[in-house]
Amino acid sequence: MEATTPGHNRTGAAVSPSEIQRMQDAVNTLSPPTPISTRQFDTERLAYIADADNVGSIPPPASLVKGTLKKGLARLKGVSPNLFLDKLGERIAFERTGTRLYDALISKYLALSNAEGDVLPPAESVFDAAGLPGEAPASAAGETPLETLRRIRAEELGHFRMLCDSTTQLGGDPTAQTPCADVIATASMGLVQVISDPRTTMAQSLNAILTAELTDNAGWELLEELAEEAGQSDLADRFSQALGAEQEHLAIVSGWLRTLVTDEAGTPAV
């Protein structure tokens, strides 16, 4: 693992001013600037959007397939059952991928700590730095950073399984890929690329996990609201608990990242 330090970066115009001047001379001769218009680009986009199919359909509830829709989704109030299933599918996909992201992050942490010693502070010490109200949760007390990473990973997995159970209770199929699950997976592709790249540092990987945790927090908030609105108080309670755990994950990841970039610049962790 190498620190991110100043070096022979060859990008940018300042690296070779004379060559850039010659490129601009060519531009001025062969494609001189005129007022920018992306009208044709925009027109194509609009036309294709207007004519597009969707990415796919929401799988019908298993109970509907069997023709016995007596409980579960049928009892939802005020929320479209199909939309609710789609958003459950999205969180299932995100928590499942989140578990795998933490697998990759733990590998990165182990490689770094094996070579450099522990570079992350204990999770309980970062709560103030993260600016969260309240005390550090009891779950973080006395934990090493590795224990915290493994606990977060276990909680992501737990959330995934709880969502699978909830979906099954409602008559849905937790193994199906809903449209929102597909779209969130597409959006997450870059996160997987960053964290699984051996060249990226712990801080760069934490930055990617931060993106995931921010999205995850917003996703749980929405799902809890939907469950409340649908009159599913049991589900809403479960989702609220998950949201609490995710808020803690966000605070820890954010705190670790802040610590690394403020205190550890120039080390292999950053």
Binding site: G12, A13, Q24, V27, S31, I36, T38, Q40, F41, E44
Partner: peptide, 25 residues
């Protein structure tokens, strides 16, 4: 039905740092 290569590059002049750096934008 149109030219993709012409549409994508309509009025395009390469500018260091992307055309969003252009002072006249």
């Amino acid at each position: 039905d149109g030219s993709p290569s012409s549409a994508v590059s309509e009025t395009y002049s390469w500018t260091p740092g992307t055309e969003l750096m252009r002072a006249d934008l």
